[in-house]
Protein backbone atom coordinates (compact mmCIF):
# COMPACT_ATOMS: atom_id res chain seq x y z
CA UNK A 1 0.00 0.00 0.00
CA UNK A 2 1.38 3.38 -0.80
CA UNK A 3 1.72 5.31 2.41
CA UNK A 4 -1.12 7.67 3.17
CA UNK A 5 0.13 10.45 0.98
CA UNK A 6 -2.07 13.34 1.87
CA UNK A 7 -1.29 16.37 -0.20
CA UNK A 8 -0.37 18.33 2.89
CA UNK A 9 1.97 16.74 5.41
CA UNK A 10 -0.09 14.86 8.03
CA UNK A 11 -0.17 15.83 11.70
CA UNK A 12 2.94 15.34 13.76
CA UNK A 13 2.53 12.69 16.46
CA UNK A 14 5.93 12.81 18.09
CA UNK A 15 8.48 15.58 18.04
CA UNK A 16 11.95 15.69 19.60
CA UNK A 17 13.46 19.13 20.10
CA UNK A 18 17.16 19.42 20.88
CA UNK A 19 17.29 16.14 22.75
CA UNK A 20 20.69 15.34 24.23
CA UNK A 21 22.03 12.60 26.44
CA UNK A 22 25.18 12.85 28.49
CA UNK A 23 27.16 10.14 30.19
CA UNK A 24 28.29 11.64 33.44
CA UNK A 25 28.86 15.37 33.31
CA UNK A 26 30.84 15.87 30.18
CA UNK A 27 30.60 13.06 27.69
CA UNK A 28 27.87 13.65 25.15
CA UNK A 29 26.66 10.34 23.76
CA UNK A 30 23.66 11.63 21.87
CA UNK A 31 22.41 14.73 20.17
CA UNK A 32 21.35 17.37 19.88
CA UNK A 33 18.60 15.65 17.92
CA UNK A 34 15.47 17.02 16.29
CA UNK A 35 13.04 14.64 14.67
CA UNK A 36 9.37 14.06 13.96
CA UNK A 37 7.17 11.05 13.54
CA UNK A 38 4.02 11.87 11.60
CA UNK A 39 0.72 10.16 12.03
CA UNK A 40 0.49 6.94 10.05
CA UNK A 41 4.18 7.00 9.29
CA UNK A 42 6.69 4.18 9.47
CA UNK A 43 10.00 5.77 10.45
CA UNK A 44 13.27 3.88 10.86
CA UNK A 45 16.49 4.85 12.60
CA UNK A 46 19.52 3.16 11.07
CA UNK A 47 23.08 3.36 12.24
CA UNK A 48 26.15 1.54 13.45
CA UNK A 49 26.27 0.16 16.98
CA UNK A 50 27.06 2.82 19.53
CA UNK A 51 25.28 5.63 17.67
CA UNK A 52 22.71 5.86 20.45
CA UNK A 53 19.71 4.71 18.48
CA UNK A 54 18.44 2.49 21.27
CA UNK A 55 18.98 5.28 23.77
CA UNK A 56 16.90 7.52 21.54
CA UNK A 57 14.10 4.98 21.52
CA UNK A 58 14.16 4.70 25.30
CA UNK A 59 13.83 8.45 25.52
CA UNK A 60 10.82 8.33 23.20
CA UNK A 61 9.25 5.58 25.28
CA UNK A 62 9.75 7.70 28.35
CA UNK A 63 11.73 5.13 30.30
CA UNK A 64 14.82 7.29 30.06
CA UNK A 65 14.77 11.00 30.74
CA UNK A 66 16.98 12.97 28.36
CA UNK A 67 19.70 15.17 29.83
CA UNK A 68 18.40 18.06 27.77
CA UNK A 69 15.68 18.84 25.24
CA UNK A 70 11.96 18.23 25.00
CA UNK A 71 9.95 15.25 23.81
CA UNK A 72 6.46 16.21 22.63
CA UNK A 73 3.78 13.61 22.18
CA UNK A 74 0.79 15.00 20.29
CA UNK A 75 2.06 18.49 21.06
CA UNK A 76 2.29 18.06 24.83
CA UNK A 77 5.67 17.69 26.57
CA UNK A 78 6.25 14.17 27.80
CA UNK A 79 6.52 13.60 31.54
CA UNK A 80 7.42 10.13 32.75
CA UNK A 81 6.54 6.98 30.84
CA UNK A 82 4.99 7.52 27.43
CA UNK A 83 1.62 5.84 27.87
CA UNK A 84 0.66 6.54 24.26
CA UNK A 85 3.55 4.41 23.01
CA UNK A 86 4.43 0.75 23.47
CA UNK A 87 7.69 -1.04 23.01
CA UNK A 88 8.91 -4.26 21.42
CA UNK A 89 12.29 -5.35 22.79
CA UNK A 90 15.28 -6.94 21.15
CA UNK A 91 15.50 -9.78 23.65
CA UNK A 92 11.72 -9.92 24.02
CA UNK A 93 11.67 -9.01 27.74
CA UNK A 94 8.72 -11.28 28.41
CA UNK A 95 7.91 -12.07 32.01
CA UNK A 96 9.04 -15.69 32.25
CA UNK A 97 6.65 -16.41 35.11
CA UNK A 98 3.55 -15.28 33.23
CA UNK A 99 1.70 -17.29 30.58
CA UNK A 100 1.39 -15.95 27.03
CA UNK A 101 -2.05 -14.51 27.67
CA UNK A 102 -0.96 -12.90 30.94
CA UNK A 103 2.09 -11.42 29.25
CA UNK A 104 -0.05 -9.91 26.51
CA UNK A 105 -2.55 -8.60 29.07
CA UNK A 106 0.04 -7.12 31.39
CA UNK A 107 -0.17 -3.60 29.98
CA UNK A 108 -3.96 -3.73 30.07
CA UNK A 109 -3.88 -4.88 33.67
CA UNK A 110 -1.65 -1.95 34.52
CA UNK A 111 -4.17 0.35 32.87
CA UNK A 112 -6.84 -1.03 35.17
CA UNK A 113 -9.05 -2.84 32.64
CA UNK A 114 -11.42 -5.38 34.20
CA UNK A 115 -10.43 -9.03 33.79
CA UNK A 116 -13.04 -9.96 31.15
CA UNK A 117 -12.13 -7.12 28.83
CA UNK A 118 -8.46 -7.67 29.21
CA UNK A 119 -8.75 -11.34 28.34
CA UNK A 120 -10.91 -10.52 25.33
CA UNK A 121 -8.44 -7.99 24.03
CA UNK A 122 -5.45 -10.20 24.70
CA UNK A 123 -7.13 -13.05 22.83
CA UNK A 124 -7.73 -10.77 19.87
CA UNK A 125 -4.11 -9.77 19.53
CA UNK A 126 -2.79 -13.27 20.20
CA UNK A 127 -5.02 -14.36 17.35
CA UNK A 128 -3.80 -11.54 15.10
CA UNK A 129 -0.16 -12.56 15.48
CA UNK A 130 -1.15 -16.19 14.86
CA UNK A 131 -0.50 -17.65 18.29
CA UNK A 132 -3.99 -18.97 19.03
CA UNK A 133 -3.73 -22.15 21.04
CA UNK A 134 -0.63 -21.04 22.91
CA UNK A 135 -2.41 -18.80 25.43
CA UNK A 136 -1.57 -21.00 28.41
CA UNK A 137 2.05 -21.67 27.44
CA UNK A 138 4.95 -20.14 29.31
CA UNK A 139 7.53 -18.14 27.33
CA UNK A 140 10.28 -20.69 27.86
CA UNK A 141 8.23 -23.27 26.01
CA UNK A 142 8.19 -21.12 22.87
CA UNK A 143 10.70 -20.66 20.07
CA UNK A 144 12.46 -17.32 19.74
CA UNK A 145 10.22 -16.26 16.87
CA UNK A 146 7.11 -17.08 18.85
CA UNK A 147 8.46 -15.17 21.83
CA UNK A 148 8.83 -12.08 19.68
CA UNK A 149 5.27 -12.56 18.43
CA UNK A 150 4.14 -12.46 22.06
CA UNK A 151 6.19 -9.29 22.49
CA UNK A 152 4.47 -7.79 19.46
CA UNK A 153 1.01 -8.79 20.67
CA UNK A 154 1.75 -7.34 24.11
CA UNK A 155 2.71 -4.01 22.58
CA UNK A 156 -0.24 -3.86 20.18
CA UNK A 157 -2.73 -4.90 22.85
CA UNK A 158 -2.49 -1.57 24.65
CA UNK A 159 -3.45 0.01 21.31
CA UNK A 160 -0.71 2.60 21.37
CA UNK A 161 -0.59 5.51 18.98
CA UNK A 162 3.09 4.84 18.46
CA UNK A 163 4.76 1.46 18.28
CA UNK A 164 8.45 1.51 19.19
CA UNK A 165 10.57 -1.41 18.09
CA UNK A 166 14.14 -1.85 19.29
CA UNK A 167 16.04 -4.19 16.95
CA UNK A 168 13.06 -6.54 17.08
CA UNK A 169 14.38 -8.99 14.51
CA UNK A 170 18.07 -9.14 15.29
CA UNK A 171 17.78 -11.95 17.83
CA UNK A 172 15.99 -14.12 15.26
CA UNK A 173 17.23 -16.28 12.41
CA UNK A 174 16.92 -14.81 8.90
CA UNK A 175 13.84 -16.75 7.83
CA UNK A 176 11.89 -16.10 11.02
CA UNK A 177 12.88 -12.46 10.90
CA UNK A 178 11.48 -12.09 7.40
CA UNK A 179 8.20 -13.79 8.32
CA UNK A 180 7.63 -11.56 11.32
CA UNK A 181 8.67 -8.49 9.34
CA UNK A 182 5.99 -9.24 6.77
CA UNK A 183 3.49 -9.81 9.55
CA UNK A 184 4.26 -6.41 11.05
CA UNK A 185 3.67 -4.76 7.67
CA UNK A 186 0.40 -6.69 7.20
CA UNK A 187 -0.81 -5.65 10.64
CA UNK A 188 0.20 -2.04 9.98
CA UNK A 189 -2.00 -2.03 6.89
CA UNK A 190 -4.82 -4.06 8.44
CA UNK A 191 -7.93 -2.23 9.69
CA UNK A 192 -7.94 -4.49 12.77
CA UNK A 193 -4.94 -2.75 14.28
CA UNK A 194 -5.28 0.78 15.64
CA UNK A 195 -1.61 1.56 15.70
CA UNK A 196 -0.53 3.41 12.59
CA UNK A 197 2.74 5.09 13.53
CA UNK A 198 5.82 2.96 13.93
CA UNK A 199 9.33 3.88 15.01
CA UNK A 200 11.83 1.14 14.24
CA UNK A 201 15.44 1.00 15.37
CA UNK A 202 17.66 -1.32 13.36
CA UNK A 203 21.18 -1.77 12.15
CA UNK A 204 20.02 -3.51 8.99
CA UNK A 205 19.70 -1.25 5.97
CA UNK A 206 17.81 -3.96 4.09
CA UNK A 207 15.25 -4.10 6.87
CA UNK A 208 14.79 -0.34 6.93
CA UNK A 209 14.39 -0.14 3.17
CA UNK A 210 11.94 -3.04 3.10
CA UNK A 211 9.67 -1.51 5.72
CA UNK A 212 9.82 2.25 6.14
CA UNK A 213 8.35 5.41 4.69
CA UNK A 214 11.32 7.39 5.84
CA UNK A 215 14.76 6.47 7.16
CA UNK A 216 17.00 8.56 9.39
CA UNK A 217 20.65 7.60 9.15
CA UNK A 218 22.53 8.09 12.43
CA UNK A 219 26.25 8.50 13.01
CA UNK A 220 28.14 7.79 16.20
CA UNK A 221 30.22 9.88 18.65
CA UNK A 222 28.04 11.60 19.53
CA UNK A 223 24.93 10.02 18.03
CA UNK A 224 23.33 12.42 15.60
CA UNK A 225 21.24 12.42 12.46
CA UNK A 226 23.51 12.39 9.42
CA UNK A 227 20.98 11.95 6.68
CA UNK A 228 17.35 11.49 5.85
CA UNK A 229 16.03 9.26 3.07
CA UNK A 230 12.44 9.51 1.89
CA UNK A 231 11.15 6.16 0.62
CA UNK A 232 7.49 7.01 0.11
CA UNK A 233 8.01 6.85 -3.60
CA UNK A 234 9.26 3.28 -3.45
CA UNK A 235 6.32 0.97 -4.24
CA UNK A 236 5.37 -1.85 -1.87
CA UNK A 237 5.76 -4.76 -1.38
CA UNK A 238 9.50 -4.27 -1.61
CA UNK A 239 11.04 -7.62 -2.40
CA UNK A 240 14.80 -7.44 -1.87
CA UNK A 241 15.63 -8.66 -5.39
CA UNK A 242 13.72 -5.89 -7.18
CA UNK A 243 16.17 -3.59 -8.99
CA UNK A 244 14.97 -0.30 -7.48
CA UNK A 245 14.99 -1.78 -3.98
CA UNK A 246 18.58 -2.97 -4.43
CA UNK A 247 19.55 0.38 -5.82
CA UNK A 248 18.16 2.15 -2.77
CA UNK A 249 19.94 -0.23 -0.43
CA UNK A 250 23.24 0.36 -2.25
CA UNK A 251 22.76 4.11 -2.11
CA UNK A 252 22.20 3.97 1.63
CA UNK A 253 25.27 1.82 2.22
CA UNK A 254 27.33 4.53 0.57
CA UNK A 255 25.66 7.11 2.85
CA UNK A 256 26.75 5.20 5.91
CA UNK A 257 30.27 4.49 4.76
Amino acid sequence: MPAPVAAESPAVLLRLEGVEQFYGEKIRILGPIDLEVREGEFLSLVGPSGCGKSTLLRIVAGVLRPSAGIVRMGGRPLKGVNTRAAMVFQSFALFPWLTVVDNVAVGLEARGLPLRERLKKAEKYIDLVGLSGYERAFPRELSRGMKQLVGLARALAVEPELLCMDEPFSALDVLTARTIRDLVLDLWESPEVMTKSILLVTHSIEEAVAMSDRVLVLKANPGRIADEVDLRGLPRPRRPDLPHVRETVDRMYSLLA
Binding site: A61, V81, V106, R154
Partner: peptide, 18 residues
Amino acid sequence: VPEELRMAADQFGLRGSL
Protein backbone atom coordinates in the same frame (compact mmCIF):
# COMPACT_ATOMS: atom_id res chain seq x y z
CA VAL B 1 17.02 -8.84 36.70
CA PRO B 2 17.73 -8.07 33.02
CA GLU B 3 17.58 -4.39 32.21
CA GLU B 4 15.16 -4.89 29.32
CA LEU B 5 12.71 -6.68 31.56
CA ARG B 6 12.75 -3.86 34.06
CA MET B 7 12.28 -1.43 31.21
CA ALA B 8 9.36 -3.45 29.87
CA ALA B 9 7.75 -3.21 33.30
CA ASP B 10 8.23 0.58 33.23
CA GLN B 11 6.99 0.85 29.70
CA PHE B 12 3.80 -1.11 30.25
CA GLY B 13 3.09 0.89 33.35
CA LEU B 14 3.60 -1.73 36.08
CA ARG B 15 3.53 0.32 39.24
CA GLY B 16 2.57 -0.19 42.84
CA SER B 17 1.30 -3.59 43.85
CA LEU B 18 1.33 -4.85 40.25
